[in-house]
């Protein structure tokens, strides 16, 4: 009630925001015995900073640093030209060695903001996937479990 009525035009960031886990929904899918795809589904009106995005895996090691898409260049008053991501982001993580049947934990560190004028602190999310056996189809993507429930739900 108050959220709807009291939102007012003075609320700098609008009447409603998403929890960071929902604004930047992280999921992971093992595509084959040595390839993982990490994805962020970024809600409309939100963006992630490219240079604040880092992936690592355990206990396996990556074949190389993952190639992040170039993103969209934002001309920032303070930071100059910075690359940001909006919408869907997918990053392939190639393991140094095939690891069929083993559990691999993907760790993603990210930081983003809302166009409404607020920024979220850097967040670290972990998702564990089981690498498929050779020739087997990939398992369904696994989404990060939100650690907090929205006050609105």
């Amino acid at each position: 009630m108050i959220a709807a009525l009291g939102a007012g035009d003075t609320a700098a960031a609008g009447p409603k925001l998403l929890e960071p886990e929902r604004a930047f929904a992280f999921s992971v899918q093992a595509l084959d015995e040595r390839t993982i795809e990490a994805r962020f589904a970024i809600a409309n009106g939100y963006y992630l900073y490219r240079e604040k995005l880092h992936f690592s895996i355990e206990p396996a090691t990556l074949a190389a640093m993952p190639t992040l898409p170039p993103g969209t260049i934002k001309d920032d008053e303070f930071f100059g030209k910075v690359a940001t991501y909006r919408g869907q982001l997918a990053v392939r993580l190639a393991l140094a060695q095939p690891a069929p049947g083993t559990n691999v934990t993907v760790r993603a560190e990210s930081q983003g903001c809302a166009d409404a004028g607020v920024c979220y602190p850097p967040q670290v999310q972990n998702i564990t996937v089981k690498m498929p056996l050779p020739g087997r189809p990939p398992e369904a993507p696994i989404a990060a479990t939100p650690t907090r429930k929205s006050w609105f739900n």
Partner: peptide, 20 residues
């Protein structure tokens, strides 16, 4: 009461993104 609270909150400029 709810309406008055809402209007008051609007006048006051209270940010509904925060818990009151």
């Amino acid at each position: 009461v709810a309406l008055a609270a809402g209007i008051y909150a609007g006048i006051d400029g209270r940010d509904s993104l925060t818990v009151d």
